[in-house]
Write a protein that binds this DNA or RNA. Structure first.
Length: 424
RNA sequence: GACUACCAAAAGGU
């Protein structure tokens, strides 16, 4: 079992989750001498969670006693994290009670997982209460706890609170690490304060820390989004001078930034460079670049990249399809856009509200509002992740009003309200 | 118990 677990762990760490599950099922099915133990279950539960098969994970978790396995802290933690990551925080919190009833003591990590779940949902008050509970149970908050809370504060824009928490953290002899700085830099950038983020970067360097790729990418992306192209390029050069080797993430951010600045050709030069450096472009890289070319009115080049993706076995996800569909629609190439749409459905990619809205916008622009409404009705019918949102409705209002169809627009407004969607 | 758990990052629609 130990060797089996080791192998399984390696497979899971490599991100080959489906392979991991197959391997598990295969081995358990035909090797009666290998009996899964708690650690095996912990790994498999993690696999199922990461694959989004959370209900199956819970099921397996409940079946453990049938295999003479008692869930341990790790099991509970893995299960709680899985639940939190799909937003089912309350169920995760109830496991905290359950584990204690079963005589299993929660650890620092257990609390961190739940605090993270609450912070991601914006439930900072509950998160704070959990920190108190944590201390009460004899668990000391560590860097991860603080980083999690800092991220929670930053994502609701409470940077002042974040700074006081940072001071508190230091006073508790908890040293800020890479993640701490990354969280703060990103928090500043998201507030449109890339200049302050640059200062923080300097501060961090003065303290002898070397910013990593995450930190550089946050800042770089922020500078480009604020239109500070010169500063962004200077940062890129400085970064390389300081010995930071750009990876796929950094190249993608740079390419995206240059495209936003209307320089897709320059961006494409970096695409070649990253490939030469041995970094494979991914869906992020290509979608940014394709959008850049569409924006510059060069759809041929965008399509070229689309083909290149296929040739390079780069997985085309929903965002890539959306960029392509939107770009083609904007050029009035509705027929081609529909072909891509069919191709997307055929590849098993399910359109979401953004993707549907791009298509609807395409029809409206071409004066085919009726067609747009058909697509809209399909969205309502499909439900789930492609429920129309405010933007979808706004696109249709615009289309209907432009064709002087006020009464249908009013009907649509009622439909919107009926579906619980708030106008902006 | 180094066979298992927690934190920061980039792309799409008005």
């Amino acid at each position: 079992v130990r060797s089996f677990n080791s192998v399984l762990n390696v497979v899971v760490k490599a991100g080959r989750l489906d392979r991991g599950l197959d391997f598990y099922e295969h081995v358990i099915g035909c090797r009666k001498d290998i009996v899964p133990n708690v650690l095996t279950f912990n790994l498999v539960v993690k696999c199922l969670c990461r694959l989004g098969r959370i209900d199956r994970a819970v099921e397996l978790f409940r079946e453990m006693p049938n295999w003479d396995c008692v869930p341990d802290v790790f099991t509970y933690c893995t299960m709680m994290d899985g639940l939190c990551k799909v937003g089912r925080v309350d169920e995760a919190v109830s496991l905290l009670d359950e584990m204690q009833i079963e005589g299993c003591f929660p650890s620092q990590v257990t609390f961190n997982v739940l605090i993270n779940g609450l912070c991601k949902k914006g439930e900072l008050v509950r998160a704070g209460r959990l920190v108190e509970n944590m201390c009460f149970k004899g668990c000391v908050p560590n860097e991860v706890t603080y980083n999690t809370l800092l991220h929670g504060l930053c994502s609701v824009g409470k940077l002042d609170k974040a700074v006081s928490l940072l001071n508190h953290m230091v006073s508790r002899k908890c040293l800020p690490n890479d993640v701490t700085y990354g969280t703060l830099v990103n928090g500043l950038v998201k507030q449109g304060r890339a200049v302050d983020a640059t200062t923080l970067l300097l501060f961090m360097e003065e303290r002898g820390m070397r910013p990593n790729e995450y930190i550089y990418s946050s800042l770089l992306s922020g500078l480009f989004k604020e239109g500070r192209v010169e500063e962004a390029m200077q940062l890129w050069k400085d970064m390389i001078t300081k010995g930071c080797k750009p990876n796929t993430l950094l190249f993608s951010v740079l390419i995206d930034g240059l495209c936003r600045a209307g320089k897709p050709d320059e961006a494409k030069g970096f695409l070649s460079q990253m490939v030469d450096d041995g970094h494979a472009p991914n869906a992020f890289t290509y979608s940014s670049l394709m959008k850049g070319y569409f924006k510059a009115g060069n759809s041929n080049e965008a399509l070229q990249l689309w083909m290149e993706m296929e040739a390079n076995n780069c997985v085309r996800n929903l965002v890539c399809y959306s960029v392509l569909i939107d770009g083609l629609c904007e050029e009035g190439k509705l027929k081609e856009a529909m072909e891509v749409w069919e191709h997307m459905l055929g590849s098993g990619c399910k359109p979401d509200a953004v993707c549907y809205s791009s298509l609807i916008h395409g029809y409206c622009r071409a004066g085919l509002v009726e067609q747009g409404l058909n697509v809209f009705n399909e969205m309502l019918f499909q439900g789930g992740q492609c429920k129309p949102d405010v933007i979808t409705y706004n696109i249709l209002f615009d289309g209907l009003c432009n064709s002087n169809n006020i009464s249908q627009a009013i009907d649509l407004l009622n439909c919107m309200l009926d579906h619980g969607c708030d106008p902006d």
